[in-house]
């Protein structure tokens, strides 16, 4: 049963799983490799994502993996003015910003961001306080304690699913306690972050346990290494695997899907909803004329 999600008054309901479109203002992110680094290219990417059915755009200013250092000021410069422009173009669109730094969180919330996607699991504990201050949404992640922008190296868990459930729900409860609106809190198992491929697959296999926490589950699966390793494919051939994972997680009740391929993801989610009887087919003339 999906619950209603709402970010700074923007109500996305509970009727269907949501698509969060990835728009990176970075020169070096692993998948888009700088394609939307330029301001205008990123704006076009938002236009396209909205046209393709995105419910949320998630704007990033620093690549997740290790690489060139990006300071706070540079990250703000990449994200904050862009948030202003996206807000101007799309007054009702839910705008998320992918950051672990509270200074960045504050700068983008001032300019109209609705949701702070804290992919590094509270590495900066002040970030959730910014979300509370602005009554913005907040994503509770799980990294196994990894330092931002580091790769997993021989990480181990007694029970990775239990670790994720405990850590993300602990963060969610804490966020709610300090004033983040409860219907704006998402939990994210955070595939690949502090996890090997088998850990990530286990988390998909047990999506139901994450959903059973009652917190809406964000799945950030798009084109990640665990897909590539599972299929033995390079970066350019991970979409099919991503969509398969998306379909199963949607069937098990995940609420939000962070995606590079917005249109395909929307179609998969609509198809899954159709199969589940949760969505009316777009048309049914066949055999009924």
């Amino acid at each position: 049963m999906r619950t209603t999600v709402r970010f700074r008054g923007r109500d996305l309901g509970a009727q269907r799983p949501l698509v969060m479109a990835i728009v990176n203002r970075t020169p070096d992110s692993f998948y888009d490799r700088g394609r939307t680094f330029e301001f205008d290219a990123a704006l076009s990417a938002v236009d396209e994502a909205v046209a393709d059915g995105a419910d949320i755009v998630d704007i990033g200013g620093v690549k997740a993996g290790p690489g060139t250092l990006v300071g706070v000021d540079e990250e703000i410069e990449r994200t904050a003015p862009f948030v202003t422009e996206v807000r101007r173009n799309f007054p009702e669109l839910v705008i998320s910003v992918d950051t672990w730094r509270h200074e960045v969180g504050r700068a983008v919330c001032v300019r109209g961001a609705d949701l702070l996607n804290d992919t590094w699991a509270g590495a900066d504990p002040k970030l959730v306080e910014v979300a509370a201050e602005f009554r913005a949404g907040y994503v509770c992640s799980h990294t196994g304690g990894a330092v931002p922008r580091t790769r997993p190296h021989r990480v181990r868990y007694e029970d990775v699913v239990r670790s994720v459930v405990e850590e993300t729900t602990r963060q969610a409860e804490r966020a709610a306690e300090i004033g983040v609106p409860e219907d704006g809190i998402l939990i994210d198992p955070t595939h690949d972050f502090g996890k090997n491929t088998r850990h990530s697959l286990a988390l998909l296999r047990h999506t139901d346990q994450l959903v059973a926490t009652g917190w809406p589950v964000l799945m950030a699966l798009s084109n990640k290494d665990f897909v590539g390793e599972t299929l033995g494919t390079e970066l350019s051939e991970r979409v099919t695997g991503t969509l398969a994972a998306t379909a199963l997680a949607a069937r098990d009740g995940a609420a939000v899907f962070r995606a590079h391929e917005v249109r395909q993801t929307r179609q998969v989610l609509d198809m899954v909803a159709g199969i589940a009887g949760e969505r009316e087919p777009a048309s049914t003339v066949r055999g009924l004329a």
């Binding site: 181990r156 990775v160 088998r198």
Partner: peptide, 11 residues
Amino acid sequence: DVTGTLAPYGL
């Protein structure tokens, strides 16, 4: 009298 396991690594 020992056991080695790769279970914490998902195996």
